[in-house]
Design a protein around this nucleic acid. Structure first.
Lengths: 231, 231
DNA sequence: TCCATATTTCGATGATAATTGAAATAATCA
DNA sequence: TGATTATTTCAATTATCATCGAAATATGGA
């Protein structure tokens, strides 16, 4: 009784189309204003505000006030993970318009999942790191091998500082479009940041999709032996 | 957006208290009748039927007809995983009632189902074989893996001769007391015969019940890693 | 065959909840 | 100060959906 009602309560927050739209928009890990989210969910600001308040009370999202704006973001990684796990059992969507089709393709190919790389790119990088023996697949996590330590050092990613963080170091995340595990956690985040920093990838505004730059194509090939050109 | 609406669709199935109650009840991995699920969710059978149909259409649950009963179960592990991931963000729940706890200790029995082992013993053996990778669960049958071939050989069960028989080799059978699938068909029969032959189990005259002998307790432990003693 | 039980379908009812216009509140800027 | 923009609150409307009684369908047993 109690367990069920709690589950239902949390699920009801996601089950409403407008809220689901808002939450998936927030899955990019960034904070957005009410107006932005209202626009993305195609509802009026009052409606978005109404839903955001509900989710705020339920601690599904968090808010920060800045001047007359209020920035809303996903509460934590657990919420993000639940959202992603939902996508894994949600049936494939019917594509309506050409615009949707290309959006869908872009988001499947490369996107951010909360704060790390997902989609085909995320899976490919994870696979490359595994194949070359830099990381090893454990039950719920990936571990960094001795070779891996050297590799990440060469990428200027400091593992010891990452491990000090309170968050999970390198857990597995199941990808809804690829249906495969990819690297999440602090290490996954560090890789995303590094790739953005090197301008190998760029965020596409207002979506979770990621664009690979020309220099990124080369860099990914050299560093990870991934050829994203063919895709 | 297309992806979002699907998420909402799936989530809406879980977000309704009665459905959440039904789904959490089904999380035990067993199959239950409509009446049972109605009782557990504290609604009338019509209501439970109404919800189960919805979840059946959405492929969240699966159903099997047996006589005038209809057994419903969770569709697959992905659905179960999503349900469990929900518990990770759902607020902490109270402890179940004492009555519920004692109800949980359902009557366990060992018996034959036509010509193969059923009841707790049948389910446990099937589970053991699956967990250790000797058989793999297919849609309607179990298949024998490479490791399994060696295992059955060591048990002196000749798979090739079994396959020559006109009857089904290894289909799934839904157990009415355990409400779970267990191994039936020629392979299930061969296991039963072998256990009788080794005097690990004995038929109790005039019933379908089976008695486990002292040497059987040891044998089951050694061969299948099943401890029937504690039960 | 008739009766009991299990499940589903149908229809009516009632409750819940999303939506939005209008208005209030809050913050920035000129 | 007044004008503008962002966000929230309020109230009324509307749509959706769970629930259950009644009846239909299906199966098993006597």
């Amino acid at each position: 009784m109690t367990v069920n009602s709690n589950v239902a309560k949390v699920a009801s927050l996601i089950s409403e189309p407008s809220r689901a739209a808002i939450l998936t928009a927030l899955l990019d890990g960034r904070f957005h204003t009410v107006n932005e989210l209202a626009h993305m969910a195609r509802v009026k600001p009052q409606t978005a505000s109404f839903h955001l308040k509900k989710m705020l009370d339920a601690q599904v999202v968090t808010a920060e006030k800045q001047g007359r704006h209020r920035y809303y973001g996903i509460m934590n990684q657990e919420v993000a993970r639940v959202m992603e796990s939902f996508l894994s059992i949600a049936p494939a969507a019917e594509i309506k318009s050409f615009k949707h089709a290309s959006e869908d393709k872009a988001i499947r190919s490369a996107r951010t999942c909360y704060d790390h790389l997902a989609g085909n790119l995320g899976v490919q990088i994870t696979e490359s790191l595994t194949k070359r023996g830099f990381i090893a697949e454990e039950k719920d996590t990936f571990s960094v091998t001795e070779d891996g330590k050297a590799f990440f050092h060469s990428m200027q990613i400091d593992l010891t500082s990452l491990k000090k963080k309170r968050r999970s170091f390198s857990h597995k995340c199941l990808d809804w479009s690829e249906r495969r595990h990819h690297l999440a956690g602090a290490l996954g985040n560090a890789i995303l940041e590094k790739l953005l920093e090197r301008n190998w990838i760029q965020r596409i505004p207002k979506t979770r999709a990621i664009k690979i730059t020309p220099s990124g194509l080369k860099g990914l090939k050299d560093t990870f032996a991934i050829d994203m050109d063919r895709e």
